[in-house]
Design a protein around this nucleic acid. Structure first.
Lengths: 221, 221
DNA sequence: CAACTTTAAGAACGATCGGTCGTTCAGATA
DNA sequence: TATCTGAACGACCGATCGTTCTTAAAGTTG
């Protein structure tokens, strides 16, 4: 066999395995966004993914390994649909606002049936211990650090005043976005778009306009 | 027997029942703040409360009835430790800030081992249906309505400008307080008081000072 | 082709889930 | 005193939990 040529030779077995692995993970993240990472059940997952409960163990040693992989999968989804699109905007306030908007969009579009995977996981694991908790904590920590970096960039560009407390502003933006999921879902009135999402959008927009050295960079509220 | 006199005649049986009912409910709320209302298990609850699993059914028909009672119990606790103390402050901005401060205090004091019962319940039940979900939704709705009323009072007193969006401000205050629990618990550094609580406090204080017609009503940040 | 590995299913495991059963015992009532 | 009631228990139920074992087919490799 010629080594080094067409390294991507088809492997029917492995390809099939990879495909069902992907299906299971996507379903796991969707189910976990509803029932939580712990409330996620292998029986339900197997049924939703169309595989047997035992066939699952061909891919993961145990439930915990699946949970860790689900976190990684959800993280990639978050980066793809929220972080990366925001990076298309010019650095500074506009990018910061775009990040927040893409996040809210992620919720209103109903990408995940439970709203937000990470939010559910954070609340579920904030008072436990073990590898899953550490992974969830790292995801939150990374997200906040990223938010803070965007804030710092806006300061460096002169769009926010020198001396702005970057961690504080990052916390506020995250808090105002995070809470909207639960409020929107618990307080629906009829079929109209829940008010919580609009309030989350306005809160951050007004906050940034209030701080901006040049508010005209941002749309009017 | 003299009818109408000392109607509260002691019944040792019922008194005993009432006492263990109280013990079980307190434990249920504590456990649910950690594991969630659904993750709450009758076995764990029985062990924590020092009763048998079956003896539990002398007081509640099923788990759902207990969950509903636990919500009512947690609501009373919330009113006692957060709402009522805040009402001791003069109406307006100071009362509004006091409410927020008492809430954060509730968290930092570690009243519940899981931080916040309602927060956990909201995230857990925002995408389900049934009586428990409705009770959780009503609790959130009442809380937001109360916050909004305090804001409206501040407006009526002239401490906030006419035309203030009361629902919007109520949402922001709640969001900034709510998120602190999870962040604090997931991002602890060593033994020092988590920074999330301080940020939640400062966020609301600065927000209110920024809006106030007379900022000197509030402490400096 | 033979030998081996990977994917997947079926059956079954012990543990635990929420819940029922019959019973016991203390205390109230007649 | 005799009877009744509410609290609490231990034993046990079917269902489901996460997990293991065995088996079989499909695909890869020597």
């Amino acid at each position: 066999m010629l080594v080094g040529m067409t390294a991507t030779k088809e492997d029917g077995r492995r390809a099939r395995g990879q495909r069902s692995r992907e299906v299971i993970l996507a379903q796991a993240v969707a189910l976990a966004s509803v029932h939580g990472l712990d409330g996620l059940t292998l029986g339900r997952l197997a049924e939703a993914a169309g595989v047997s409960k035992s066939g699952f163990f061909a891919h993961w040693r145990d439930k915990e390994e699946l949970q860790l992989d689900a976190i990684a999968w959800a993280h990639r989804q978050w980066v793809d649909l929220i972080v990366r699109p925001a990076l298309l905007e010019p650095a500074g306030l506009r990018r910061l606002l775009a990040l927040h908007e893409h996040r809210i969009r992620f919720y209103t579009d109903g990408i995940l049936p439970g709203g937000c995977f990470f939010f559910a996981a954070q609340v579920e694991y904030d008072d436990r211990s073990g590898p899953v908790r550490e992974a969830v904590a790292r995801a939150l920590s990374d997200w906040l650090a990223f938010l803070e970096r965007l804030v710092a960039e806006a300061v460096a560009l002169g769009e926010l005043p020198e001396g702005t407390d970057t961690a504080q502003l990052a916390y506020e933006i995250d808090a105002l976005g995070e809470t909207s999921v639960t409020h929107a879902r618990l307080l629906r009135h009829g079929d109209d778009e829940p008010r919580a999402y609009a309030m989350a959008r306005r809160a951050v927009l007004h906050r940034l306009r209030g701080l901006a050295t040049d508010p005209s960079l941002l749309p009017e509220g």
